[in-house]
Amino acid sequence: MEHTLNALALTQTPLAAGGDGEFHTPSISEFFPDAVLFEGTVFELNRIRIALVLVTLVIAALFAIAMRNPQRVPRGGQNVAETAIDFVRNSIALETLGRVKGTRYLPYLVTLFFFVLGANILAIVPGVNIAASSTIGLPFLLAMITWAIYHVDGVREHGLFGYIKVQTVVPGVPKALAPVVILLEALQALIIRPFSLMLRLLANMMAGHILLVLFFSGASYLLLHGGGLLPVAGAGSAVMGLAFTGFELFVAALQAYIFTLLTAMYINMAISHEH
C-alpha cells in the first residue's frame, strides 16, 4: 500500500510541475480527480460524477422527448427510440428470457443498457475523457442491483430452499463429487458472478482510458519535445490514438451489451425451472 502511494506521489510530481518537457505517464491517480462540489460531505462530486449525472439526465430527457406523444405509427424521434428499445428487446431480453419473462424484465434491461452505454461513452467525450464506469463505484452498484434482483426473484419463484437447490445442485453429478460441486456453484452464484460482472466493466473502461492517455500524451510529448525523427513517431502515435478512440466507442457499446446480456442470463438461471 505504501508502495502504491509512493508510486502515485512520484507520478504526480511532473504533473504538479506543469508537465513542461516531462512525459505524462498515465496513472491510477487520474481516475480520482479533485472534488468540485460539496467537498467533504457524502455527496462529494468530482468531474467524473458530474458528467455521470449530466449523462443520466440527457438519456432520460432524450427518451422522454422521443416518447412524449407516442403515436401508433412512429415518426422521427419516436422511431429512433423504438429502434433502440427493440434492439435490447429482441437481441437480449427475448433471446435469453423468452417472451413472457423477457417482457417483464425489459424496463430494467433497457435502463441498464442505456445507462451503462452513456457512462461508457463518456470515455471519448471531449472534455470528460474518462468513463464514469472506470472507477469502482458505478460497476459495483450496478452489479449489486443485478445480484439483488436475481436472488430476490429466484427466491420468489422457487421459495428459499427450492432456489438454493436450483442454484447449487447440478443434475447428473456423481455422489462423491456432489459436495464440491455444490460449494463451487454456491460460490459462483454468491460471489463470482457479481464480482466478474463488476470487474469486466471496470477493467475494460480503465484499460481503454489508459491506452488513450498513453497514445495522446506520447503524441504531444514526441511532437513538442522530440528531437530528430521523433515527431514522425509522435504523428503515428496520434493516428493510433484516433483509431483507438473509435475502438473505445465499440468497446463502450460491447460492454453495455455484455453487461445487460449477462444480467438477463443470470436472471434466467435464477428463475427458470430447468437446469
Partner: peptide, 23 residues
C-alpha cells in the same frame, strides 16, 4: 444470430481472465 449471442457470452467469460490480470 444465435451463434453471435453465444460468442459474446463466451467472450465475456474469457475476457475477464485477461482483465483480472490487468487489475
Amino acid at each position: 444470430p444465435m451463434l453471435r449471442t453465444t460468442m459474446f457470452l463466451g467472450l465475456a467469460f474469457i475476457e475477464v481472465l485477461a482483465l483480472i490480470g490487468l487489475v
